[in-house]
Design a protein around this nucleic acid. Structure first.
Length: 499
RNA sequence: GGCGGGUUGGCGGAGAGGUUACGCAGCGGAUUGCAAAUCCGUGAAGACCGGUUCGAUUCCGGUACCCGCCUCCA
């Protein structure tokens, strides 16, 4: 079995991965707060952990991996978004508007992440809403956990709030490498007067009459952000599980607080064993922000015609623990590469074997850039020699299976490419498949060239060639053959007119 | 102020204490009616200063610069 090695933020080392229970490897990823479209930065952890999920499924079996990713659907930003709609004159109640907002955002999120080729989370391979829990469905578990923390002396009630007492947990700060005293020294947080310690954080807070609230022993209120993930991961994965992931910006305070809550509520368990954090995303060398005008959502890119597969490829070009820079140049490179790969690959044969070197690269702390390099190499060998290989179908299948470990070249993902194998097979021009149209035109061009070589009059050859290029078709001429490849500006109508 | 990450050839971007990363672009050649595509070949690196070592871009220390987090942003 392949040994997976992962860099654990907790140990600051690359350690061999040993699941608690190989028959059910469990992973939790902090999901989005559902108030708006996912921006590009939101997509990075989704793609990174999707690759890890695929790797785990490959190594341990699809039914032996559980992947849970939550939706935070109780939050000030959600309330604010709903409030804005109400103030704009919507007659529905705030509660209805909040519900509508979160429902809609979840649908957007699914559509956008699907477009990136991210698999839906699952419980042992079974995709269901349970694997994508919503915070509001786990309020009783959160209340229970908070109650438990109070009983164990790790939390206290003050003015309708319940706060976690960070001084009661000696391990506080271990994940992020900070000491409570250091944090206080550098804190820029305004300290509520009822806190025992400035770093104490909210487990439960009171809610006003017009905002969502739940009855609790401490009055009508709502949970703090951090308790959500502790309660949901315990409910769905157990008090100990294998991997907890998220962006590096969540390391502190969110994940630190999760650890404090979970370890204090379940002192005999060790909560998440491996913590993985992806670095942040930048755009053209700068932090993505609305003020710099370089802020965009996944949907913005898709609408501009950047295919989800290309977005995914760009994300995978950089190792997850390094800051990654989103640039137009990378998009161009990724698109050109995928265009090639889609073009020469025959996707019809299944049962490919994943290349050992691709697998090894991924097993080595998700070295996606290394895996892509190996795929480049494989593609080159395939392209150069496949015509001489008796089992070239198998070689194609192996290549595709390997690319799919990265979520690339998935079935249906090539639909964006006019030149892709699957597209050529399926697209009809009039009543003729595109593949037939192309071979027909290619034959005609070959014949024209043959006679032109005799007559020395190349005007007809050039005319057809120009027409093809105008239709967005690349003309690749070799000594005997002429290959026609639809490009990014392919125009089916203009091509159809040439037949 | 506290904590953390980064600095590799023209650009992007990996691994490895001594042997080609890889991709894009460039250059030379082959091929071609021309061009494109393709093929062959090829130059180019490791921020700076020290240390360990037979040998470091790879390990250790320091300096500089860049970036992020500490504000319920992935």
């Amino acid at each position: 079995m392949v040994e997976i090695r992962l860099t654990n933020t907790l140990t600051r080392r690359k350690d061999p991965f040993r699941p608690i229970d190989p028959s059910n490897v469990r992973m939790y990823l902090c999901g989005p707060t559902v108030y708006d479209r996912a921006h590009l930065g939101n997509a990075r952890p989704v793609v990174v952990f999707d690759v890890l999920y695929r790797l785990l499924r490959h190594v341990y079996g699809e039914d032996h991996v559980t992947y849970v990713r939550n939706f935070t659907d109780v939050d000030d930003k959600i309330n604010a978004a709903a409030q804005a709609v109400k103030e704009a004159g919507d007659p529905r109640s705030l509660e209805e508007l909040i519900r509508a907002r979160t429902e809609e955002t979840i649908r957007w999120y699914h559509a956008d992440m699907d477009a990136l080729g991210a698999l839906r989370p699952s419980i042992r391979g079974e995709v269901s809403d349970r694997a994508e829990p919503r915070a509001t469905d786990y309020i009783p578990q959160m209340i229970e956990m908070i109650r438990d923390l109070i009983a164990r002396g790790h939390a206290y009630e003050a003015e309708g709030h319940v706060l976690f007492d960070v001084r009661s947990f000696p391990g506080y700060g271990r994940l992020s490498g900070r000491s409570v005293d250091d944090m206080i020294a550098g804190a820029r947080v305004e300290v509520a007067p009822f806190k025992r310690d400035p770093m104490d954080f909210v487990l439960w807070k009171p809610s006003s009459a017009d905002l969502p609230g739940w009855d609790s022993p401490w009055g009508c209120g709502r949970p703090g952000w951090h308790i959500e993930c502790s309660a949901m991961s315990a409910a769905l994965l157990g008090e100990s599980f294998d991997i907890h992931g998220g962006g590096i910006d969540l390391q502190f305070p969110h994940h630190e607080n999760e650890i404090a809550q979970s370890c204090c509520a379940h002192p005999h368990e060790d909560f998440a064993r491996v913590w993985l954090h992806n670095e942040m995303l930048q755009v053209e060398g700068k932090k993505m922000s609305k003020s710099l005008g370089n802020f965009f959502t996944v949907r913005d890119l898709l609408d501009q015609g950047v295919p989800g597969e290309v977005i995914r490829f760009v994300m995978l070009m950089t190792h997850y623990r390094k800051p990654m820079d989103w640039t137009a140049e990378k998009v161009r490179e990724a698109e050109a590469t995928l265009r090639d790969w889609h073009h020469f690959c025959d996707f019809t044969e299944g049962n490919g074997r994943v290349d050992p070197q691709v697998l090894e690269a991924l097993a080595d702390d998700l070295n996606t850039a290394g895996a892509l390099a190996r795929l480049h190499q494989m593609a080159r060998e395939l392209f150069l020699h496949k015509s001489q290989w008796p089992d070239s179908k198998q070689a194609d299948a192996d290549f595709v299976a390997s690319a799919r470990m990265l979520g690339l070249l998935e079935e249906g993902m090539g639909a964006w490419l006019p030149g892709s194998f699957e597209h050529i097979e399926s697209l009809l021009l009039g009543d003729m498949p595109l593949s037939d149209v192309l071979s027909k035109l290619s034959d005609r061009l070959v014949n024209l060239r043959a006679s032109a070589r005799e007559s020395k009059d190349f005007s007809q050859v050039d005319a057809l060639k120009s027409a093809l290029i105008a239709a967005g078709v690349e003309v690749r001429m070799s000594a005997e053959n002429i290959d026609l490849v639809p490009g990014s500006d392919f125009d089916p109508d203009r091509l159809g007119a040439l037949v």
